[in-house]
Computed example of a mutant assay.
Amino acid sequence: MTNTTTVLISGASIAGPALAYWLARDGATVTIVEKAPALRPGGQAVDFKGETHMELLSRMGILEEVRRRQTGGTDVTFVSRDGEPLAVMPGEFTGGDLEILRGDLSEILYDLTSPTCEYVFGDSITSLTETASGVHVTFEKGAPRTFDLVVGADGIHSNVRNLAFGPEKDYVKHLNYYYALVDMAPITHEAVGYNEPGRMVQLGGSKAPTFFVFSSPELTYDRYSADEQKRILLDAYRGLGWRGPEILAALAGASNVYLDSIGHVEIDRYSTGRVVLIGDAGYAHTLGGIGTGLALTAAYVLAGELSQADHRTAFGRYEEILRSFAKGAAQGNAGRFLAPRRRYGIWLRNLLFRKRFLLDQMAKEGEKRAAGQHRLPDYSFA
Rank of each mutant, 00 (worst) to 15 (best):
residue 176 N to S: 05
residue 347 W to R: 15
residue 46 V to T: 02
residue 45 A to C: 03
residue 21 Y to E: 02
residue 339 A to C: 04
residue 200 M to T: 07
residue 11 G to E: 08
residue 220 T to P: 00
residue 335 G to W: 02
residue 11 G to I: 12
residue 234 L to N: 02
residue 233 L to K: 09
residue 223 R to W: 06
residue 291 G to I: 04
residue 63 L to R: 13
residue 27 G to A: 12
residue 119 Y to R: 14
residue 267 I to K: 10
residue 144 P to T: 04
residue 75 D to K: 09
residue 291 G to V: 02
residue 214 F to C: 00
residue 85 P to K: 08
residue 229 Q to M: 14
residue 99 E to W: 05
residue 97 D to K: 06
residue 286 T to I: 08
residue 68 R to P: 00
residue 39 L to R: 04
residue 328 G to K: 09
residue 161 R to I: 03
residue 374 H to V: 11
residue 24 A to L: 07
residue 238 R to P: 00
residue 185 A to T: 12
residue 328 G to I: 07
residue 120 V to D: 02
residue 215 S to Q: 10
residue 334 A to T: 07
residue 283 Y to C: 05
residue 90 P to D: 02
residue 250 A to N: 11
residue 368 K to Y: 12
residue 288 G to H: 05
residue 111 D to R: 15
residue 5 T to V: 10
residue 44 Q to L: 04
residue 153 A to Y: 12
residue 246 E to P: 11
residue 122 G to H: 14
residue 251 L to K: 08
residue 265 V to C: 08
residue 213 V to L: 10
residue 222 D to I: 09
residue 199 R to W: 11
residue 284 A to N: 04
residue 318 Y to C: 12
residue 364 K to W: 14
residue 310 D to V: 15
residue 213 V to A: 05
residue 268 D to E: 12
residue 254 A to E: 04
residue 251 L to Q: 03
residue 323 R to D: 04
residue 146 T to P: 11
residue 94 T to L: 12
residue 245 P to N: 02
residue 47 D to R: 04
residue 324 S to M: 09
residue 341 R to T: 14
residue 259 L to W: 10
residue 137 V to G: 10
residue 300 Y to G: 06
residue 58 S to F: 09
residue 232 I to V: 11
residue 188 T to M: 02
residue 298 A to D: 05
residue 77 T to M: 06
residue 221 Y to I: 04
residue 101 L to F: 05
residue 307 S to L: 14
residue 307 S to G: 15
residue 45 A to I: 10
residue 113 T to C: 14
residue 20 A to P: 08
residue 7 V to I: 14
residue 91 G to M: 06
residue 339 A to M: 01
residue 271 S to V: 08
residue 339 A to R: 02
residue 27 G to P: 06
residue 328 G to F: 13
residue 65 E to D: 11
residue 329 A to E: 00
residue 61 G to Y: 14
residue 175 L to T: 00
residue 78 F to P: 08
residue 277 L to A: 04
residue 206 S to V: 05
residue 274 R to G: 05
residue 329 A to C: 06
residue 144 P to M: 10
residue 248 L to T: 05
residue 190 E to G: 01
residue 162 N to V: 09
residue 76 V to L: 05
residue 219 L to P: 01
residue 82 D to L: 15
residue 307 S to A: 15
residue 125 I to Q: 11
residue 17 P to I: 09
residue 205 G to C: 05
residue 194 Y to R: 07
residue 163 L to E: 00
residue 259 L to M: 00
residue 362 M to L: 15
residue 49 K to P: 02
residue 234 L to I: 03
residue 59 R to E: 01
residue 200 M to D: 00
residue 217 P to E: 09
residue 214 F to M: 03
residue 252 A to T: 08
residue 325 F to S: 06
residue 92 E to L: 09
residue 211 F to K: 03
residue 378 D to P: 01
residue 338 L to V: 10
residue 171 Y to F: 15
residue 200 M to L: 13
residue 358 L to M: 14
residue 271 S to D: 01
residue 324 S to D: 03
residue 265 V to F: 10
residue 130 E to M: 12
residue 152 G to I: 11
residue 45 A to P: 01
residue 304 G to L: 15
residue 170 D to I: 03
residue 285 H to A: 06
residue 247 I to S: 00
residue 38 A to I: 00
residue 96 G to Q: 01
residue 318 Y to E: 03
